[in-house]
Design a protein around this nucleic acid. Sequence first.
DNA 1: CGTGATCCTTACGTTCACGTCAGGTTTGAG
DNA 2: CTCAAACCTGACGTGAACGTAAGGATCACG
Lengths: 187, 187
Amino acid sequence: MSTSARHPTGQAPQSPVEGSADGESLRIGDVAKLAGTTPRTIRYYEEIGLLPEAPARPSGRHRLYSAAEVERLREVMRLKDLLGVSLEQLKTLLSAEEARAEVRAQLRRDDVEPDRRRELLQEALGHIDRQLELVRNRAGELQKLEHELCETRKRARRKVRELDAQQGGAFPPSPPALETASGEPQP
Amino acid sequence: MSTSARHPTGQAPQSPVEGSADGESLRIGDVAKLAGTTPRTIRYYEEIGLLPEAPARPSGRHRLYSAAEVERLREVMRLKDLLGVSLEQLKTLLSAEEARAEVRAQLRRDDVEPDRRRELLQEALGHIDRQLELVRNRAGELQKLEHELCETRKRARRKVRELDAQQGGAFPPSPPALETASGEPQP
DNA sequence: CGTGATCCTTACGTTCACGTCAGGTTTGAG
DNA sequence: CTCAAACCTGACGTGAACGTAAGGATCACG
């Protein structure tokens, strides 16, 4: 970081990020930026099997991704954050989606026996239900917490108003500070 | 762990856990069990200032807790889990509750100037609002996720039914597996 | 007042989820 | 073809959140 800022163009000359017409050939750095993370994380996720290996990479060559991989990554990060599970558990959960993808693939082919189809769909449904239960539990807990906080908030506001009214008269219920009326509550 | 299982009474002779009439004098192991964690974790939380030091412990003596501490601990664990924040951030968030406790204490004393009261209450309100926003964000995200999962689930079920109907006739829509009608969905 | 279970402090070990650095290779604009 | 920028593979480092083990002090029952 001293005498290397040569390119007077300023920014990095590479990284199209959206240059090509279709949504193909993103490099790992681009994907990372688009998903809001780092290349290292992507490689790590791939390493532990949370993300599939970059599709058909010809040996030691650079990884190339499509927009779909970015979506996948975002979804992974979203689930990790919202469900608060370990990457290992997340991998298990996501295996369900892989299974579903496979189901869809099989469904597109028309040469599968209906019995087999039923099996696959039923399995997928089971996965979905497990996820759904997990999500519902957490969502419920969070709503409970939200409700509690709202109540607490109400009580606090009431106390403020009481205080205002009690020794009021001196000056009218003037705007107490900045954000006054309904800046937050709107259930 | 060889020739020490003497006490024929079977269980540990200590740990009242609910023996005393009031809710006092719990030892760290009891608290841990009641809250579903370990003594080490409790000491750690105390060490980093997430929990207050066991009240008035006479020097190197054992820690003693009351039922209230158990509640506090459960609350901490709940927030940690639901909000998915670091213990450091959680400490910051909880400082708000400490502040609120202090406010309540000051409110009980009657000799505080109203202006000061207002200040305290307003501050507490600010803390609450910050928490509330955080909780609401997460709750909203989780609901979105839940909704998406529900949709996916619906589609899957529809496909199953289609499959049933298509090559049905052979045998009626018999119970596909075990859990059949409305075992999960009830929004 | 002995004694076994529990607790104390101190300190090092561990797992997860990456960060960072080294040394070499690949890529793409010029 | 050149050359800087980005990428590659290892390998080691790191912070958070505890686990675990050592050596000794406390506690409560008998």
